[in-house]
Design a protein around this nucleic acid. Sequence first.
RNA 1: GGAGGGAUGGCCGAGCGGACGAUGGCGGCGGUCUUGAAAACCGCUGUGACCGGAAUGGUCACCGGGGGUUCGAAUCCCUCUCCCUCCGCCA
Length: 423
Amino acid sequence: MLDINLIRRDPHLVRSALVARNEDPTLVDRVLEIDARWRALLTQVEELRAERNRVSREIGRMKDPAQREPLIAQMRAVGDRIAELEDQVRAAEIERDDLLLRLPNLPHPSVPIGPDERHNVIVQQWGEPRLFEFDPLPHWDLGPELGILDFERGVKLVGSRFYVLWGVGALLERALIAWMLHVHTHEHGYTEVYLPFVVKRECLVGAGQLPKFEDNLYHDVEDDIWLVPTAEVPLTNLHRDEILPPDALPLKYVAYTPCFRRERMSAGRDIRGIKRGHQFDKVEMYQITTPETSYDALEEMLEHALDLCRRLEIPHRVVQLCTGDLGFAAAKTYDIEMWAPGCGEWLEVSSISNCEDFQARRANIRYRPEPGARPRFVHTLNGSGLALPRVVIAILENYQQPDGSVLIPEVLRPWMGGLERIG
RNA sequence: GGAGGGAUGGCCGAGCGGACGAUGGCGGCGGUCUUGAAAACCGCUGUGACCGGAAUGGUCACCGGGGGUUCGAAUCCCUCUCCCUCCGCCA
């Protein structure tokens, strides 16, 4: 959520940010109009409440009923008027907040301006795509042939975009999770967290998925419980409504969770293989920092994710997203893409974002800079480290051999009982 | 799932219709005293919103959440959530 004071003070800045994101800039004017109405009504209510408080205190002190009666009658009328105005204030507040909750974050000045992903900027690349002496297969052929990936059973159990991993395929998935968690906790300084995979509605508002992106979420109607689309949601809400003490920051968390997404918006896209499923595993890095240090933390998290990519020895590149491709809550985002020679595309295996105080405002996460000082909003950052199925794709397709077997990356072998090869 | 008891400021704990944003204690901060420290004593000690150029300024709201009764609610009523105890069930 944007600071309403910023919108009041500098509406032009917010309008141009919305334009850069392909959003309607007149939203700003609607917010300002409702906000002005809200403030006018609020002033009225508060003046009437002050009067009622004052007179009610007087009534309490009076003993003579004859004196009290007229004042009580008078205050009853004031009370009715207050109730009317309160309804109007509440209505204006709801309308304003609903708009405010739908405004995306402001892009950081370093973000390239552009309408869509064609304007993203490749900022670095590691490794060269391997030269194959045969036609590399896509993972949707390799996996089933190796007997580790089963699309039919997934469809049988749930439907399209679900799959089953068998044997070494399941082991590979589990090894990746364990290895990534190990590196982040032992070498990158993160604390591992095991989280609920479902959350209540307000957590999704806090992290920015609601009210705008309800379409993409699975939801239990009976209890109003929602499956997490990413660990970022529960991680953001861990400290919701808290004031963190001085010296608490930065907080660095890492969590494995499955992620659940309906993918309604992407119907028909990426239907082959395991690139885009309704359920996938992800290890997520998360940091809560002071406003002064969040951009250093962003670079640090990018480095932590790249470290994993290099150790897996898979060619990859870093892409900086332009304004038009930026996620709703993000001020600045780097994607990491791994090369997949079988399906012939760069796969997004990580997305690392600084949300600045956008989520902190929604989730009301603050910190106290000094003992006794006024609380300030924290900055929150999230980054995949890494998203599993796409790493599995990259491993299968990059490490495939002419005989149809797949070598296991060196770093993962200790996590797979010393296994060197699949098939 | 059944029966009962709770939820108050950083913590403990009073208050059960009228000057309560809330007695008291602990903790924390500042001061007096002291070579220094402790003890003792004194003072301060929540969050947010609105108005205002600003104030050590004014007003409003907040005693788990929401709603109601009343001139007036931390206090009364309804409802939801969570916690505790006992019973049942179970990984």
